[in-house]
Write a protein that binds this DNA or RNA. Structure first.
Lengths: 333, 333
DNA sequence: CTGTTAGCGCATTCAG
DNA sequence: CTGAATGCGCTAACAG
């Protein structure tokens, strides 16, 4: 591998001059610049980003920590982050935290030790306090899918309360008042906020929240099935099931159909997240959008703006969910 | 940030000794080791992996280049790669090539410039020649989902010919002889190999390959729909559609149902990949497994064994697909 | 078993 | 506009 030194020899200039033409800031005469560039070309010179990092104290790497790498959401998010950052010639180091506090913490330290210039975190298990403390250290962090008021400017998040509100409002407007609710794990803020929005809509319509028609799932499909089994055993009648995400909705609909309860004729469903279901499932699930790609991209832009000082970038911290109406909610007469 | 130098001062030893206790290879007396460890603890010392990389000429980073980061497959693969590598205290730098030759090439160079110790590549557009040449350079590479005979030991791949063969054999054994085939893009080896297996099974059963019942899709769901529209317009009768992947099968089934062709009563379907469909779709698609996670993990193990010289690792280069029988193939009388 | 001495490849003062 | 010198934090001979 040719080094900057080899280039300087071949070009007949000093090491510093070669460095200058690489970092095209200071003035170099056209002639010497050309000489240097020719030499670089001739040697097939590629700067060592590691040496650059050590000397400049800037690694050009961004750590990205997510709960999982699989599933439709994180992949979409990673796609946007990677492309935005690589276009800026930064590289992304990934880690998965698996929604476990110890693993998340370990991953953060791992990324920090790697000399990342910034961290993009989509974490669920780490406490607010930990994150607030982390945000005050040397390495800047930005949070996706999480809102902590003390560091609101570093949070890129979805208005989940509004999303929950919109979903419930929608089914209420279709005449449903006997509502079941399948929640996500309430230790996750997402799940709590969606539920909060649900209750807010209920309150506005003077509809009571019925504890017997409430089930706390874990956001995965099987827990939706479990929830539905539970609900069908209750004595209380209901005409609509509101699910805190589409995957649980999928599990719940499955069980519903197995019990010969027609969807949406006898029972309506609404989900959350706009999960990319295959084309031929029926009914098509009405749901609430979750613009995770845009949020990922925004986190990358945040880093570009605040860490690498790119101007002309506008940061949007709060994203707004939207209703996506399809075929799973019927009018209730 | 405390440096190794600070630690050496506090511990009252030399710089080299501190380095030794970190890289626990050479012998250090228990007492001095303890002194050093105490000093490290007291200072909250964390070694700079960048400086380590520069000095040792080993970055402990592995570049992973995939076509896409989203979708159910690459996410699952990345999960395994990340966890296997991080357990070994290596980090993974990701890049997406988007099945485009220029982008893939650029990504490879990007990762190389980053000083990766090895590259794990799941690429489709780069030519065999390019990859063979690349494999002879300094940085070791390992290929996933691809077989190039010249560098077979660096290929971790699925026996797609066998998979295609098994799928077709299965439907033939159920009495289907009028078969339609929806292929993937034939410029991708996966697609060609699956088709090859299909033809091999046909030949064994003396069934002719019917050009009018062949459609080349692109592995995405909409092309499956297009394919089905095309097939239904043909005059030739067929009782079964073999799809080169599940996503196209999904699109095709969708169109089939729209045209009131019952699945599997009137028309059978078989897919490929074992895509994680939601629980409640019907019929459940019979398909061929694609153990992409295991292949990802194996690629990581390959790197651990061949680059970081971990012994006791057995590498399996070729994975064997298996039939997964569900409800989308009927007996044809 | 431990200390001394050179670099790794580059950025960045400071002179000139 | 350009060159010489210094150091980023660590590893790796080489002595002792």
């Amino acid at each position: 591998m040719a080094t900057i030194y080899d280039v300087s020899i071949l070009a007949g200039v000093s090491l510093a001059t070669v460095s200058r033409v690489m970092n095209k800031n200071t003035n170099v005469s056209e002639k010497t610049k050309k000489k240097v560039q020719d030499a670089m070309e001739q040697l097939g010179y590629r700067p060592s980003s590691i040496a650059q990092s050590l000397a400049s104290n800037c690694s050009n790497s961004i750590g990205v920590l997510v709960s999982q790498l699989n599933g439709p959401f994180y992949g979409a998010m990673m796609t946007e982050i990677e492309s935005a950052l690589r276009n800026a010639n930064k590289h992304v180091i990934i880690a998965a935290g698996h929604s476990d506090e110890a693993q998340e913490r370990e991953a953060v330290e791992f990324l920090l030790d790697r000399g990342c210039d910034a961290l993009i975190l989509d974490v669920e298990a780490l406490s607010d306090d930990y994150l607030i403390a982390l945000s005050q250290k040397r390495t800047p962090i930005v949070l996706i899918n999480r809102y902590i008021s003390e560091i609101a400017d570093r949070c890129i998040h979805l208005n989940n309360v509004l999303g929950g509100y919109l979903a419930t409002k929608h089914v209420l407007s279709h005449g449903h008042t006997k509502l079941a609710y399948i929640a996500g794990p309430l230790l996750k803020p997402d799940a709590r906020e969606r539920l909060e929005g649900h209750k807010k809509a209920l309150a506005e319509h003077d509809v009571n929240f019925d504890d017997t028609l409430f089930y706390e799932g874990n956001f995965f499909e099987p827990s939706g099935s479990d929830a539905m089994e539970y609900l069908l055993k209750q004595d209380t009648h209901f005409t609509c099931v509101i699910c805190a995400n589409d995957q649980m909705a999928s599990g719940a609909i499955s069980v519903s159909l197995e019990h010969n309860v027609m969807v949406p004729e006898q029972l309506s469903f609404i989900g959350y997240d706009n999960f990319p279901f295959p084309k031929y499932i029926s009914p098509k699930l009405s749901t609430v959008s979750n613009p995770i790609q845009e949020m990922g991209k925004m986190a990358a832009l945040w880093v570009l703006k605040n860490v690498y000082k790119k101007p002309d970038i506008n940061i949007v911290n709060t994203f707004t969910p939207q209703l996506i109406l399809r075929d799973s909610v019927n009018n209730n007469q």
